[in-house]
Amino acid sequence: MSRIAERFASLRGRGRTALIPFVTAGDPHPSTTVPLMHAMVGAGADLIELGVPFSDPIADGPVIQRATERALARGVSLAHVLSMVRAFRAQDPDTPVVLMGYLNPIEVMGYERFAVAAQAAGVDGALVVDVPPEEGAELVAALRGRGLDLVYLLAPTSTPERIRLIGEVASGFVYYVAVKGVTGAGHLDLDAVAARVSTIKSAIPLPVGVGFGIKDAATAAAVAAVADAVIVGSAIVSRIEALEQTPEAIPGVIAEFLADLRAAIDAVDAG
């Protein structure tokens, strides 16, 4: 069983909805990331999504675009991100880490080389935004060969056929994109999200995380009522951006924010 599957099984046993924070690796500085990851775990994160910077992030809104530009300005590459995970893993053997990004940096490294290096670093899975199942066979094979999960997105526009198709290839969990739009955008239609998550759960026997548009404790709690995992990205990254000049304050501030989200989610789980 993969570390991701184990983690979700254990959460299910405890009736706990997962909290998954996203941060861009190396934002605003490479030295920020590992301490921040530990602080997020301490504040109640169950799994961490680590963004791999790419020069042309077509699925990201302005907040994560700027985070990407800050990281790239520091020269953060996929190899650096793997070394950050290795450093994190040295002290945290349990919390799953999923890399989220775009295909080209992986393509240039080579699928097999990436899979080997990611496994060695302690990565548990990858979510490659611009690789749909139709183009993913080779990448899936390389990752599976090293025990890594390939996490897929589902969208409001996904048809029943596409949900089935993704169910056949996804592992770990699936990530429902709650709004049509880029990261950090939009207004959540919670009834629609609930209906879609229920459709997805009836078709795919994996945990369903929901992200895009979760900004605060209230939206986190509302999503926790219907999903297995609450994924929060831009709301965290914009707080990091505000602290660019005082990076030492970042882990504390983000931990406090996540603790609020955790408390709101726990209240839903207890109710």
Partner: peptide
Amino acid sequence: AHGHFGPYGGLFVPETLMHP
């Protein structure tokens, strides 16, 4: 049929755009 020209081309987009 999948939009490939030999190893090139294809359909590398986020899921939201696949059905459209």
